[in-house]
Write a protein that binds this DNA or RNA. Structure first.
Lengths: 208, 208
DNA sequence: GGAGTTACGCTACGACCCGTAGCGAAAGCG
DNA sequence: CGCTTTCGCTACGGGTCGTAGCGTAACTCC
Protein backbone atom coordinates (compact mmCIF):
# COMPACT_ATOMS: atom_id res chain seq x y z
CA UNK A 1 0.00 0.00 0.00
CA UNK A 2 2.46 2.61 1.18
CA UNK A 3 4.96 1.38 -1.39
CA UNK A 4 6.70 4.70 -1.76
CA UNK A 5 10.04 2.97 -1.35
CA UNK A 6 12.29 3.85 -4.31
CA UNK A 7 15.27 1.56 -3.81
CA UNK A 8 15.63 0.16 -0.33
CA UNK A 9 17.78 -2.66 -1.55
CA UNK A 10 19.91 -2.92 1.55
CA UNK A 11 19.15 -4.35 4.97
CA UNK A 12 16.70 -6.97 6.10
CA UNK A 13 13.44 -6.73 4.14
CA UNK A 14 10.14 -6.44 5.88
CA UNK A 15 8.22 -9.64 6.16
CA UNK A 16 5.28 -9.68 3.77
CA UNK A 17 3.85 -12.57 5.75
CA UNK A 18 3.81 -10.39 8.82
CA UNK A 19 1.77 -7.78 6.97
CA UNK A 20 -0.82 -10.33 5.99
CA UNK A 21 -0.91 -11.82 9.47
CA UNK A 22 -1.35 -8.42 11.09
CA UNK A 23 -4.18 -7.38 8.78
CA UNK A 24 -5.94 -10.70 9.25
CA UNK A 25 -5.51 -10.42 13.01
CA UNK A 26 -6.94 -6.91 12.88
CA UNK A 27 -10.08 -8.11 11.14
CA UNK A 28 -10.37 -10.96 13.60
CA UNK A 29 -10.09 -8.56 16.52
CA UNK A 30 -12.67 -6.27 14.92
CA UNK A 31 -15.13 -9.14 14.79
CA UNK A 32 -14.55 -10.23 18.37
CA UNK A 33 -14.00 -6.93 20.11
CA UNK A 34 -15.25 -4.15 17.85
CA UNK A 35 -13.48 -0.88 17.23
CA UNK A 36 -13.33 0.71 20.63
CA UNK A 37 -12.07 -2.35 22.50
CA UNK A 38 -9.54 -3.28 19.86
CA UNK A 39 -6.01 -2.71 21.13
CA UNK A 40 -2.80 -2.84 19.17
CA UNK A 41 -1.25 -5.03 21.83
CA UNK A 42 -3.96 -7.59 21.27
CA UNK A 43 -3.56 -7.47 17.49
CA UNK A 44 0.17 -7.97 17.81
CA UNK A 45 -0.35 -11.02 20.00
CA UNK A 46 -2.89 -12.52 17.61
CA UNK A 47 -0.59 -11.97 14.65
CA UNK A 48 2.37 -13.46 16.45
CA UNK A 49 4.51 -10.34 16.10
CA UNK A 50 5.92 -7.86 18.56
CA UNK A 51 3.98 -4.71 19.31
CA UNK A 52 6.90 -2.61 18.13
CA UNK A 53 6.72 -4.17 14.69
CA UNK A 54 3.18 -2.90 14.39
CA UNK A 55 4.16 0.64 15.27
CA UNK A 56 7.00 0.57 12.75
CA UNK A 57 4.53 -0.01 9.90
CA UNK A 58 1.42 1.88 10.89
CA UNK A 59 1.09 5.24 12.56
CA UNK A 60 -1.78 4.08 14.72
CA UNK A 61 -5.04 2.23 15.06
CA UNK A 62 -6.80 4.30 12.40
CA UNK A 63 -4.39 3.59 9.60
CA UNK A 64 -4.16 -0.08 10.49
CA UNK A 65 -7.91 -0.60 10.39
CA UNK A 66 -8.23 1.26 7.09
CA UNK A 67 -5.79 -1.11 5.46
CA UNK A 68 -7.39 -4.14 7.08
CA UNK A 69 -10.86 -3.17 5.88
CA UNK A 70 -9.66 -2.07 2.45
CA UNK A 71 -8.67 -5.63 1.62
CA UNK A 72 -12.30 -6.66 1.98
CA UNK A 73 -13.25 -4.50 -0.98
CA UNK A 74 -10.70 -6.02 -3.32
CA UNK A 75 -13.21 -8.59 -4.48
CA UNK A 76 -15.64 -5.99 -5.86
CA UNK A 77 -16.17 -6.29 -9.59
CA UNK A 78 -18.77 -5.41 -12.19
CA UNK A 79 -19.77 -8.32 -14.41
CA UNK A 80 -21.80 -7.38 -17.45
CA UNK A 81 -25.36 -8.52 -16.77
CA UNK A 82 -26.86 -7.03 -19.90
CA UNK A 83 -28.69 -3.98 -18.60
CA UNK A 84 -28.05 -0.96 -16.44
CA UNK A 85 -30.53 -2.11 -13.82
CA UNK A 86 -29.01 -5.58 -13.64
CA UNK A 87 -25.50 -4.16 -13.41
CA UNK A 88 -26.47 -1.88 -10.55
CA UNK A 89 -28.26 -4.64 -8.72
CA UNK A 90 -25.28 -6.92 -9.03
CA UNK A 91 -22.69 -4.52 -7.69
CA UNK A 92 -24.94 -3.22 -4.95
CA UNK A 93 -25.57 -6.72 -3.72
CA UNK A 94 -21.84 -7.35 -3.65
CA UNK A 95 -21.26 -4.16 -1.73
CA UNK A 96 -24.03 -5.02 0.70
CA UNK A 97 -22.59 -8.47 1.28
CA UNK A 98 -19.21 -7.03 2.18
CA UNK A 99 -20.72 -4.37 4.40
CA UNK A 100 -22.76 -7.00 6.20
CA UNK A 101 -19.63 -8.58 7.61
CA UNK A 102 -19.03 -7.44 11.18
CA UNK A 103 -15.42 -6.43 10.60
CA UNK A 104 -16.53 -4.10 7.83
CA UNK A 105 -19.41 -2.61 9.77
CA UNK A 106 -17.58 -1.67 12.91
CA UNK A 107 -14.26 -0.89 11.30
CA UNK A 108 -15.31 1.18 8.34
CA UNK A 109 -17.71 3.50 10.12
CA UNK A 110 -15.27 4.06 12.94
CA UNK A 111 -12.47 5.20 10.68
CA UNK A 112 -14.87 7.38 8.73
CA UNK A 113 -15.83 9.03 11.99
CA UNK A 114 -12.19 9.56 12.86
CA UNK A 115 -11.46 10.90 9.39
CA UNK A 116 -13.64 13.92 10.09
CA UNK A 117 -10.75 15.26 12.14
CA UNK A 118 -7.84 13.87 10.13
CA UNK A 119 -7.39 14.87 6.50
CA UNK A 120 -4.59 12.39 5.88
CA UNK A 121 -6.78 9.58 7.14
CA UNK A 122 -9.63 10.65 4.88
CA UNK A 123 -7.29 10.64 1.90
CA UNK A 124 -6.14 7.17 2.84
CA UNK A 125 -9.72 5.94 3.02
CA UNK A 126 -10.49 7.51 -0.30
CA UNK A 127 -7.62 5.98 -2.22
CA UNK A 128 -7.80 2.60 -0.52
CA UNK A 129 -11.55 2.04 -0.49
CA UNK A 130 -13.82 4.68 -1.98
CA UNK A 131 -12.18 5.28 -5.34
CA UNK A 132 -12.21 1.59 -6.00
CA UNK A 133 -15.98 1.60 -5.79
CA UNK A 134 -16.38 4.79 -7.73
CA UNK A 135 -14.54 3.23 -10.64
CA UNK A 136 -17.40 0.73 -10.88
CA UNK A 137 -19.91 3.54 -11.19
CA UNK A 138 -17.98 5.02 -14.07
CA UNK A 139 -17.74 1.67 -15.83
CA UNK A 140 -21.44 1.02 -15.44
CA UNK A 141 -22.19 4.45 -16.83
CA UNK A 142 -20.10 3.91 -19.94
CA UNK A 143 -21.69 0.52 -20.51
CA UNK A 144 -25.18 1.93 -20.22
CA UNK A 145 -24.29 4.66 -22.70
CA UNK A 146 -23.01 2.12 -25.18
CA UNK A 147 -26.25 0.21 -24.80
CA UNK A 148 -28.20 3.41 -25.41
CA UNK A 149 -29.79 3.31 -21.95
CA UNK A 150 -28.24 6.63 -20.99
CA UNK A 151 -27.42 9.66 -23.15
CA UNK A 152 -23.81 10.50 -23.92
CA UNK A 153 -21.78 13.02 -22.00
CA UNK A 154 -22.45 16.20 -23.90
CA UNK A 155 -21.44 18.08 -20.75
CA UNK A 156 -18.48 16.40 -19.00
CA UNK A 157 -18.79 18.52 -15.85
CA UNK A 158 -22.43 17.65 -15.54
CA UNK A 159 -21.61 14.00 -16.10
CA UNK A 160 -19.07 14.03 -13.30
CA UNK A 161 -21.52 15.66 -10.94
CA UNK A 162 -24.12 13.09 -11.84
CA UNK A 163 -21.75 10.22 -11.22
CA UNK A 164 -20.79 11.64 -7.83
CA UNK A 165 -24.44 12.00 -6.92
CA UNK A 166 -25.31 8.47 -7.90
CA UNK A 167 -22.34 7.16 -6.02
CA UNK A 168 -23.26 9.01 -2.85
CA UNK A 169 -26.88 7.90 -3.11
CA UNK A 170 -26.18 4.24 -3.71
CA UNK A 171 -23.31 3.77 -1.30
CA UNK A 172 -24.95 5.96 1.30
CA UNK A 173 -28.25 4.13 1.03
CA UNK A 174 -26.63 0.73 1.50
CA UNK A 175 -24.62 1.95 4.45
CA UNK A 176 -27.61 3.61 6.05
CA UNK A 177 -29.83 0.61 5.48
CA UNK A 178 -27.27 -1.79 6.93
CA UNK A 179 -25.96 0.18 9.86
CA UNK A 180 -28.60 2.67 10.91
CA UNK A 181 -31.83 0.99 9.93
CA UNK A 182 -30.18 -2.34 10.72
CA UNK A 183 -32.26 -4.18 8.16
CA UNK A 184 -30.89 -6.48 5.47
CA UNK A 185 -30.01 -5.00 2.08
CA UNK A 186 -31.43 -8.07 0.38
CA UNK A 187 -32.51 -8.64 -3.20
CA UNK A 188 -35.96 -7.18 -2.78
CA UNK A 189 -34.63 -3.99 -1.26
CA UNK A 190 -31.91 -3.65 -3.86
CA UNK A 191 -34.49 -4.15 -6.59
CA UNK A 192 -36.59 -1.30 -5.23
CA UNK A 193 -33.54 0.90 -4.91
CA UNK A 194 -32.43 0.18 -8.46
CA UNK A 195 -35.89 0.72 -9.85
CA UNK A 196 -36.17 4.14 -8.27
CA UNK A 197 -32.72 5.09 -9.45
CA UNK A 198 -33.11 3.95 -13.03
CA UNK A 199 -36.47 5.63 -13.33
CA UNK A 200 -34.96 8.83 -12.01
CA UNK A 201 -32.08 8.67 -14.45
CA UNK A 202 -34.40 7.93 -17.34
CA UNK A 203 -36.64 10.81 -16.34
CA UNK A 204 -33.66 13.13 -16.12
CA UNK A 205 -32.53 12.09 -19.57
CA UNK A 206 -35.98 12.67 -20.99
CA UNK A 207 -36.44 16.02 -19.28
CA UNK A 208 -33.12 17.37 -20.50
CA UNK B 1 -34.71 11.08 27.98
CA UNK B 2 -34.39 8.15 30.40
CA UNK B 3 -37.33 9.48 32.39
CA UNK B 4 -38.43 6.07 33.59
CA UNK B 5 -38.67 7.38 37.14
CA UNK B 6 -42.15 6.62 38.51
CA UNK B 7 -42.25 8.60 41.75
CA UNK B 8 -38.87 9.64 43.10
CA UNK B 9 -40.41 12.15 45.43
CA UNK B 10 -37.87 11.74 48.18
CA UNK B 11 -34.25 12.72 48.41
CA UNK B 12 -32.27 15.41 46.65
CA UNK B 13 -33.37 15.77 43.01
CA UNK B 14 -30.90 15.56 40.20
CA UNK B 15 -29.76 18.85 38.85
CA UNK B 16 -31.27 19.53 35.44
CA UNK B 17 -28.67 22.24 34.94
CA UNK B 18 -25.96 19.64 35.35
CA UNK B 19 -27.52 17.54 32.57
CA UNK B 20 -27.48 20.48 30.21
CA UNK B 21 -23.94 21.44 31.17
CA UNK B 22 -22.69 17.91 30.67
CA UNK B 23 -24.27 17.52 27.24
CA UNK B 24 -22.96 20.90 26.14
CA UNK B 25 -19.51 20.02 27.43
CA UNK B 26 -19.67 16.74 25.54
CA UNK B 27 -20.38 18.53 22.27
CA UNK B 28 -17.60 20.99 22.99
CA UNK B 29 -15.17 18.16 23.63
CA UNK B 30 -16.30 16.42 20.44
CA UNK B 31 -15.42 19.53 18.46
CA UNK B 32 -12.03 20.00 20.03
CA UNK B 33 -10.90 16.43 20.51
CA UNK B 34 -13.06 14.18 18.37
CA UNK B 35 -14.51 10.88 19.44
CA UNK B 36 -11.48 8.79 20.19
CA UNK B 37 -9.67 11.37 22.30
CA UNK B 38 -12.74 12.40 24.21
CA UNK B 39 -12.53 11.28 27.84
CA UNK B 40 -15.21 11.35 30.47
CA UNK B 41 -12.83 12.95 32.91
CA UNK B 42 -12.36 15.84 30.53
CA UNK B 43 -16.09 16.24 29.97
CA UNK B 44 -16.69 16.31 33.71
CA UNK B 45 -14.09 19.03 34.17
CA UNK B 46 -15.56 21.11 31.33
CA UNK B 47 -19.05 20.79 32.74
CA UNK B 48 -17.92 21.69 36.24
CA UNK B 49 -19.19 18.46 37.77
CA UNK B 50 -17.48 15.52 39.38
CA UNK B 51 -16.64 12.49 37.28
CA UNK B 52 -18.79 10.31 39.52
CA UNK B 53 -21.85 12.39 38.70
CA UNK B 54 -21.35 11.54 35.07
CA UNK B 55 -21.21 7.82 35.75
CA UNK B 56 -24.35 7.99 37.86
CA UNK B 57 -26.35 9.22 34.86
CA UNK B 58 -24.81 7.53 31.85
CA UNK B 59 -23.52 4.01 31.45
CA UNK B 60 -20.55 5.12 29.38
CA UNK B 61 -19.16 7.22 26.59
CA UNK B 62 -21.48 5.79 23.95
CA UNK B 63 -24.72 6.65 25.69
CA UNK B 64 -23.50 10.09 26.64
CA UNK B 65 -22.56 11.02 23.10
CA UNK B 66 -25.85 9.74 21.70
CA UNK B 67 -27.77 12.04 23.99
CA UNK B 68 -25.43 14.95 23.29
CA UNK B 69 -25.80 14.56 19.53
CA UNK B 70 -29.53 13.87 19.68
CA UNK B 71 -30.17 17.38 20.95
CA UNK B 72 -28.75 18.75 17.71
CA UNK B 73 -31.58 17.18 15.74
CA UNK B 74 -34.32 18.75 17.84
CA UNK B 75 -34.45 21.74 15.53
CA UNK B 76 -35.44 19.68 12.49
CA UNK B 77 -38.83 20.61 11.10
CA UNK B 78 -40.75 20.44 7.84
CA UNK B 79 -42.26 23.75 6.78
CA UNK B 80 -44.75 23.52 3.94
CA UNK B 81 -43.03 24.94 0.87
CA UNK B 82 -45.78 24.15 -1.58
CA UNK B 83 -44.39 21.17 -3.47
CA UNK B 84 -42.85 17.79 -2.79
CA UNK B 85 -39.55 18.84 -4.34
CA UNK B 86 -39.37 22.03 -2.31
CA UNK B 87 -40.26 20.19 0.90
CA UNK B 88 -37.54 17.64 0.31
CA UNK B 89 -34.97 20.27 -0.52
CA UNK B 90 -35.80 22.20 2.62
CA UNK B 91 -35.50 19.34 5.05
CA UNK B 92 -32.43 17.90 3.37
CA UNK B 93 -30.67 21.24 3.62
CA UNK B 94 -31.52 21.40 7.30
CA UNK B 95 -30.22 17.91 7.84
CA UNK B 96 -27.07 18.71 5.91
CA UNK B 97 -26.47 21.83 7.97
CA UNK B 98 -26.68 19.87 11.20
CA UNK B 99 -24.48 17.11 9.88
CA UNK B 100 -21.90 19.64 8.78
CA UNK B 101 -21.18 20.61 12.36
CA UNK B 102 -18.08 18.87 13.63
CA UNK B 103 -19.69 17.56 16.80
CA UNK B 104 -22.34 15.84 14.71
CA UNK B 105 -19.91 14.39 12.20
CA UNK B 106 -17.48 12.79 14.59
CA UNK B 107 -19.99 11.90 17.27
CA UNK B 108 -22.80 10.43 15.21
CA UNK B 109 -20.73 8.14 13.01
CA UNK B 110 -18.73 6.90 15.97
CA UNK B 111 -21.76 5.79 17.94
CA UNK B 112 -23.25 4.23 14.82
CA UNK B 113 -20.06 2.23 14.46
CA UNK B 114 -20.25 1.16 18.07
CA UNK B 115 -23.90 0.27 17.72
CA UNK B 116 -23.02 -2.56 15.36
CA UNK B 117 -21.96 -4.50 18.44
CA UNK B 118 -24.49 -3.15 20.94
CA UNK B 119 -28.20 -3.64 20.33
CA UNK B 120 -29.24 -1.44 23.23
CA UNK B 121 -27.14 1.38 21.86
CA UNK B 122 -28.67 1.00 18.42
CA UNK B 123 -32.13 1.19 19.93
CA UNK B 124 -31.15 4.33 21.78
CA UNK B 125 -29.89 5.91 18.57
CA UNK B 126 -33.05 4.94 16.78
CA UNK B 127 -35.45 6.41 19.27
CA UNK B 128 -33.40 9.51 20.02
CA UNK B 129 -32.32 10.48 16.52
CA UNK B 130 -33.45 8.38 13.59
CA UNK B 131 -37.16 8.11 14.25
CA UNK B 132 -37.36 11.85 14.60
CA UNK B 133 -36.16 12.24 11.03
CA UNK B 134 -38.28 9.45 9.70
CA UNK B 135 -41.37 11.19 10.95
CA UNK B 136 -40.54 14.03 8.55
CA UNK B 137 -40.50 11.62 5.64
CA UNK B 138 -43.95 10.37 6.55
CA UNK B 139 -45.30 13.90 6.85
CA UNK B 140 -43.87 14.91 3.50
CA UNK B 141 -45.39 11.85 1.91
CA UNK B 142 -48.84 12.58 3.22
CA UNK B 143 -48.58 16.19 2.09
CA UNK B 144 -47.55 15.17 -1.41
CA UNK B 145 -50.48 12.75 -1.59
CA UNK B 146 -52.89 15.48 -0.57
CA UNK B 147 -51.46 17.67 -3.31
CA UNK B 148 -51.87 14.86 -5.81
CA UNK B 149 -48.15 14.62 -6.46
CA UNK B 150 -48.01 11.03 -5.26
CA UNK B 151 -50.62 8.27 -5.46
CA UNK B 152 -52.43 7.17 -2.33
CA UNK B 153 -51.46 4.15 -0.31
CA UNK B 154 -53.43 1.40 -1.92
CA UNK B 155 -50.91 -1.04 -0.44
CA UNK B 156 -49.85 -0.03 3.08
CA UNK B 157 -47.01 -2.53 3.24
CA UNK B 158 -45.64 -1.28 -0.04
CA UNK B 159 -45.97 2.30 1.16
CA UNK B 160 -43.97 1.54 4.32
CA UNK B 161 -41.26 -0.12 2.28
CA UNK B 162 -41.12 2.84 -0.02
CA UNK B 163 -40.84 5.29 2.85
CA UNK B 164 -38.01 3.26 4.38
CA UNK B 165 -36.22 3.21 1.06
CA UNK B 166 -36.51 6.94 0.53
CA UNK B 167 -35.35 7.58 4.04
CA UNK B 168 -32.28 5.40 3.66
CA UNK B 169 -31.46 6.94 0.29
CA UNK B 170 -31.77 10.54 1.38
CA UNK B 171 -30.18 10.30 4.79
CA UNK B 172 -27.52 7.95 3.51
CA UNK B 173 -26.69 10.18 0.57
CA UNK B 174 -26.26 13.25 2.75
CA UNK B 175 -24.11 11.36 5.22
CA UNK B 176 -21.99 9.84 2.49
CA UNK B 177 -21.60 13.13 0.69
CA UNK B 178 -20.61 14.97 3.85
CA UNK B 179 -18.39 12.42 5.52
CA UNK B 180 -16.98 10.14 2.88
CA UNK B 181 -16.86 12.32 -0.20
CA UNK B 182 -16.16 15.29 2.07
CA UNK B 183 -17.85 17.72 -0.26
CA UNK B 184 -20.53 20.21 0.74
CA UNK B 185 -24.16 19.18 0.53
CA UNK B 186 -25.05 22.63 -0.78
CA UNK B 187 -28.11 23.85 -2.60
CA UNK B 188 -26.96 22.76 -6.03
CA UNK B 189 -26.25 19.25 -4.86
CA UNK B 190 -29.50 18.98 -2.96
CA UNK B 191 -31.36 20.19 -6.03
CA UNK B 192 -29.82 17.43 -8.14
CA UNK B 193 -30.59 14.87 -5.47
CA UNK B 194 -34.19 15.98 -5.17
CA UNK B 195 -34.66 16.06 -8.91
CA UNK B 196 -33.47 12.50 -9.31
CA UNK B 197 -35.62 11.35 -6.44
CA UNK B 198 -38.81 13.06 -7.53
CA UNK B 199 -38.39 11.84 -11.09
CA UNK B 200 -37.89 8.33 -9.79
CA UNK B 201 -41.00 8.51 -7.64
CA UNK B 202 -43.04 9.97 -10.47
CA UNK B 203 -41.80 7.25 -12.79
CA UNK B 204 -42.69 4.58 -10.28
CA UNK B 205 -46.17 6.01 -9.88
CA UNK B 206 -46.63 6.06 -13.65
CA UNK B 207 -45.24 2.58 -14.20
CA UNK B 208 -47.44 1.02 -11.55
C1' DG C 1 33.17 -14.13 3.99
C1' DG C 2 33.11 -9.68 6.18
C1' DA C 3 30.98 -5.03 6.77
C1' DG C 4 27.11 -2.33 6.70
C1' DT C 5 22.16 -1.73 7.08
C1' DT C 6 17.63 -2.59 8.26
C1' DA C 7 13.93 -5.41 10.55
C1' DC C 8 12.65 -8.06 14.42
C1' DG C 9 11.47 -9.74 19.25
C1' DC C 10 11.67 -8.63 23.81
C1' DT C 11 11.53 -5.87 28.04
C1' DA C 12 10.74 -1.91 30.55
C1' DC C 13 8.95 2.55 31.31
C1' DG C 14 6.11 6.94 32.49
C1' DA C 15 1.82 8.79 31.29
C1' DC C 16 -2.85 8.60 30.89
C1' DC C 17 -7.65 7.00 31.36
C1' DC C 18 -10.91 3.77 33.20
C1' DG C 19 -14.59 2.62 36.43
C1' DT C 20 -15.47 2.11 41.34
C1' DA C 21 -15.43 2.87 46.32
C1' DG C 22 -15.75 5.63 50.33
C1' DC C 23 -16.52 9.81 52.64
C1' DG C 24 -18.76 14.14 54.34
C1' DA C 25 -21.73 17.81 52.85
C1' DA C 26 -25.81 19.62 50.43
C1' DA C 27 -30.64 19.68 48.96
C1' DG C 28 -34.95 18.26 48.83
C1' DC C 29 -39.46 15.91 51.42
C1' DG C 30 -42.69 14.64 55.29
C1' DC D 1 -35.99 17.82 62.34
C1' DG D 2 -35.03 12.85 60.46
C1' DC D 3 -34.87 10.47 55.99
C1' DT D 4 -33.29 9.92 51.45
C1' DT D 5 -30.79 10.83 47.44
C1' DT D 6 -27.39 13.51 45.03
C1' DC D 7 -23.12 15.85 44.88
C1' DG D 8 -18.00 16.93 45.05
C1' DC D 9 -13.83 15.12 46.28
C1' DT D 10 -10.08 11.82 46.86
C1' DA D 11 -7.99 7.63 46.13
C1' DC D 12 -7.26 3.26 44.07
C1' DG D 13 -5.95 -1.08 41.06
C1' DG D 14 -6.01 -2.24 36.39
C1' DG D 15 -5.32 -1.54 31.74
C1' DT D 16 -3.56 0.66 27.37
C1' DC D 17 -0.60 3.83 25.13
C1' DG D 18 3.51 4.90 22.50
C1' DT D 19 8.52 4.93 22.94
C1' DA D 20 13.25 3.64 24.07
C1' DG D 21 16.88 0.46 24.39
C1' DC D 22 19.13 -3.76 23.43
C1' DG D 23 20.70 -7.94 21.27
C1' DT D 24 19.70 -10.82 17.35
C1' DA D 25 18.28 -12.04 12.57
C1' DA D 26 18.15 -11.32 7.58
C1' DC D 27 19.71 -9.44 3.49
C1' DT D 28 23.00 -6.64 0.24
C1' DC D 29 27.12 -4.95 -1.40
C1' DC D 30 32.09 -5.20 -1.69
Amino acid sequence: MQSRRPAARTGRPRSAAADAAILAATREALVELGWSKLTLSDVATRAGVAKTTLYRRWAGKNELVVDAVAELFDELELPDRGSLAADIEGVVLQFAAILDRPEAKSGLMAVVAESTRDDALRARIRTSIVDRQKRLVMEGRVRAQKRGELPGDNDPAQAARSADLIFDMVAGAVVHRTLVSARPADEAWVRDLTRLLVLGLAGAARAS
